[in-house]
Amino acid sequence: GSPGIQSFLPPGWEMRIAPNGRPFFIDHNTKTTTWEDPRLK
């Protein structure tokens, strides 16, 4: 199987799917959430 997208996120980050189907990202380091992919910064 191919590695999940989770493995490509920075340490402490998690990806979830919102009720509307959009992915969002949780930064457990700062306890914040964002719509922006942290890998694109």
Score class of each variant (00 low, 15 high):
Gly1Lys: 10
Gly1Arg: 05
Gly1His: 11
Gly1Tyr: 10
Gly1Leu: 13
Gly1Ile: 12
Gly1Asp: 12
Gly1Trp: 10
Gly1Ala: 14
Gly1Gln: 13
Ser2Asp: 14
Ser2Met: 13
Ser2Arg: 13
Ser2Ile: 12
Ser2Gln: 14
Ser2Val: 12
Ser2Thr: 12
Ser2Leu: 13
Ser2Lys: 12
Pro3Arg: 01
Pro3Glu: 12
Pro3Tyr: 09
Pro3Val: 10
Pro3Ile: 11
Pro3Gln: 12
Pro3Ser: 12
Pro3Asn: 12
Pro3His: 12
Gly4Pro: 14
Gly4Asp: 14
Gly4Cys: 10
Gly4Arg: 01
Gly4Ser: 12
Gly4Thr: 13
Gly4Gln: 14
Gly4His: 13
Gly4Glu: 13
Gly4Phe: 10
Gly4Trp: 05
Ile5His: 14
Ile5Gly: 15
Ile5Phe: 14
Ile5Val: 14
Ile5Pro: 14
Ile5Asp: 14
Ile5Met: 13
Ile5Asn: 13
Ile5Gln: 14
Ile5Cys: 14
Ile5Thr: 14
Ile5Trp: 13
Ile5Ser: 12
Ile5Tyr: 13
Gln6Trp: 02
Gln6Leu: 07
Gln6Arg: 02
Gln6Ile: 12
Gln6Asp: 15
Gln6Glu: 14
Gln6Val: 11
Gln6Met: 07
Ser7Arg: 12
Ser7His: 14
Ser7Pro: 15
Ser7Phe: 09
Ser7Lys: 14
Ser7Leu: 13
Ser7Tyr: 11
Phe8Trp: 11
Phe8Pro: 15
Phe8Thr: 15
Phe8Met: 14
Phe8Lys: 15
Phe8Ser: 15
Phe8Asn: 15
Phe8Gln: 15
Phe8His: 15
Leu9Glu: 02
Leu9Cys: 03
Leu9Ile: 04
Leu9Asn: 01
Leu9Ala: 01
Leu9Arg: 00
Leu9Tyr: 03
Leu9Pro: 01
Leu9Gly: 01
Leu9Ser: 01
Leu9Gln: 01
Pro10Gly: 04
Pro10Trp: 05
Pro10Arg: 07
Pro10Asn: 02
Pro10Ala: 04
Pro10Tyr: 06
Pro10Lys: 07
Pro10Leu: 09
Pro11Ile: 08
Pro11Met: 12
Pro11Leu: 10
Pro11Asp: 10
Pro11Ala: 14
Pro11Thr: 10
Pro11Cys: 07
Pro11Val: 10
Pro11Asn: 09
Pro11Ser: 11
Pro11His: 11
Pro11Phe: 09
Gly12Arg: 04
Gly12Ile: 01
Gly12Tyr: 05
Gly12Lys: 04
Gly12Thr: 01
Gly12Asn: 07
Gly12Pro: 04
Gly12Asp: 02
Gly12Ala: 03
Gly12Gln: 04
Trp13Phe: 04
Trp13Ile: 02
Trp13Thr: 00
Trp13Gln: 00
Trp13Ala: 00
Trp13Met: 01
Trp13Gly: 00
Trp13Asn: 00
Glu14Asn: 01
Glu14Ala: 05
Glu14Gly: 02
Glu14Tyr: 03
Glu14Lys: 02
Glu14Trp: 01
Glu14Gln: 05
Met15Ile: 11
Met15Arg: 05
Met15Ala: 07
Met15Lys: 05
Arg16Tyr: 09
Arg16Ala: 11
Arg16His: 11
Arg16Ile: 12
Arg16Val: 13
Arg16Pro: 01
Arg16Met: 12
Arg16Trp: 06
Arg16Lys: 13
Arg16Gln: 12
Ile17Phe: 13
Ile17Ser: 06
Ile17Glu: 07
Ile17Asp: 04
Ile17Met: 11
Ile17Ala: 05
Ile17Asn: 06
Ile17Gly: 02
Ile17Tyr: 13
Ile17Gln: 07
Ile17Val: 10
Ala18Asn: 07
Ala18Lys: 05
Ala18Met: 10
Ala18Ser: 11
Ala18Arg: 05
Ala18Leu: 10
Ala18Trp: 04
Ala18Phe: 05
Ala18Gln: 07
Pro19His: 12
Pro19Leu: 10
Pro19Met: 09
Pro19Cys: 03
Pro19Asp: 10
Pro19Thr: 12
Pro19Lys: 10
Pro19Ile: 09
Pro19Phe: 09
Pro19Arg: 13
Asn20Ala: 02
Asn20Val: 02
Asn20Tyr: 03
Asn20Lys: 02
Asn20Met: 03
Asn20Ile: 02
Asn20His: 06
Gly21Pro: 04
Gly21Gln: 04
Gly21Tyr: 01
Gly21Met: 04
Gly21Asn: 05
Gly21Ser: 03
Gly21Leu: 03
Gly21Ala: 02
Gly21His: 06
Arg22Asp: 07
Arg22Lys: 13
Arg22Ser: 09
Arg22Val: 11
Arg22Thr: 10
Arg22Trp: 08
Arg22Ala: 10
Arg22Asn: 07
Arg22Tyr: 08
Pro23Ser: 06
Pro23Thr: 08
Pro23Val: 08
Pro23Trp: 08
Pro23Tyr: 09
Pro23Gly: 03
Pro23Leu: 08
Pro23Met: 07
Pro23Phe: 09
Phe24Arg: 02
Phe24Gln: 07
Phe24Val: 08
Phe24Lys: 03
Phe24Ser: 02
Phe24Asp: 00
Phe24Thr: 02
Phe24Glu: 06
Phe24Ala: 02
Phe25Asn: 00
Phe25Arg: 00
Phe25Glu: 00
Phe25Ser: 00
Phe25Gly: 00
Phe25Tyr: 09
Phe25Ile: 00
Phe25Asp: 00
Phe25Met: 00
Phe25Thr: 00
Phe25Leu: 01
Ile26Asp: 00
Ile26Glu: 03
Ile26Met: 06
Ile26Ala: 01
Ile26Asn: 01
Ile26Thr: 04
Ile26His: 05
Ile26Arg: 02
Asp27His: 07
Asp27Glu: 04
Asp27Tyr: 03
Asp27Thr: 00
Asp27Trp: 02
Asp27Ala: 01
Asp27Lys: 01
Asp27Leu: 02
His28Gln: 06
His28Arg: 05
His28Ser: 07
His28Met: 07
His28Lys: 06
His28Tyr: 09
His28Asn: 10
His28Asp: 04
His28Pro: 05
His28Thr: 09
His28Phe: 09
His28Glu: 04
Asn29Gly: 07
Asn29Asp: 06
Asn29His: 08
Asn29Lys: 10
Asn29Leu: 08
Asn29Ser: 08
Asn29Ala: 12
Asn29Gln: 08
Asn29Met: 08
Asn29Phe: 08
Asn29Glu: 08
Thr30Ser: 10
Thr30Ile: 02
Thr30Gly: 08
Thr30Asp: 05
Thr30His: 07
Lys31Pro: 03
Lys31Thr: 08
Lys31Ser: 11
Lys31Asp: 14
Lys31Phe: 09
Lys31Glu: 11
Lys31Leu: 11
Lys31Gln: 13
Lys31Val: 06
Lys31Trp: 10
Lys31Tyr: 08
Lys31His: 14
Lys31Ala: 14
Lys31Gly: 14
Lys31Asn: 14
Thr32Glu: 07
Thr32His: 08
Thr32Lys: 09
Thr32Arg: 11
Thr32Leu: 10
Thr32Ala: 07
Thr32Met: 10
Thr32Phe: 10
Thr33Ser: 13
Thr33Val: 14
Thr33Cys: 04
Thr33Asp: 03
Thr33Tyr: 14
Thr33Glu: 09
Thr33Asn: 07
Thr33Lys: 11
Thr33Pro: 03
Thr33Met: 13
Thr33Arg: 11
Thr34Arg: 02
Thr34Met: 05
Thr34His: 08
Thr34Asp: 02
Thr34Ala: 03
Thr34Gly: 05
Thr34Leu: 03
Thr34Glu: 02
Thr34Cys: 14
Thr34Phe: 04
Thr34Tyr: 05
Trp35Arg: 03
Trp35Val: 04
Trp35Phe: 12
Trp35Gln: 04
Trp35His: 06
Trp35Thr: 06
Trp35Lys: 03
Glu36Trp: 09
Glu36Ala: 08
Glu36Phe: 09
Glu36Val: 08
Glu36Tyr: 09
Glu36Arg: 08
Glu36Pro: 00
Glu36Asn: 09
Asp37Thr: 04
Asp37Val: 05
Asp37Lys: 06
Asp37Ala: 07
Asp37Phe: 07
Asp37Gln: 06
Asp37Asn: 03
Asp37Leu: 05
Pro38Phe: 00
Pro38Arg: 01
Pro38Tyr: 00
Pro38Ser: 01
Pro38Asp: 01
Pro38Asn: 01
Arg39Leu: 06
Arg39Ser: 13
Arg39Asp: 04
Arg39Asn: 11
Arg39Cys: 15
Arg39Met: 10
Arg39Gln: 06
Arg39Tyr: 06
Arg39Thr: 15
Arg39Phe: 07
Leu40Trp: 12
Leu40Glu: 15
Leu40His: 14
Leu40Gln: 14
Leu40Ser: 12
Leu40Ala: 14
Lys41Pro: 15
Lys41Gly: 15
Lys41Ala: 15
Lys41Val: 15
Lys41Gln: 15
Lys41Arg: 06
Lys41Phe: 15
Lys41Trp: 15
Lys41Ser: 15
Lys41Tyr: 15
Lys41Met: 15
Lys41Glu: 15
Lys41His: 15
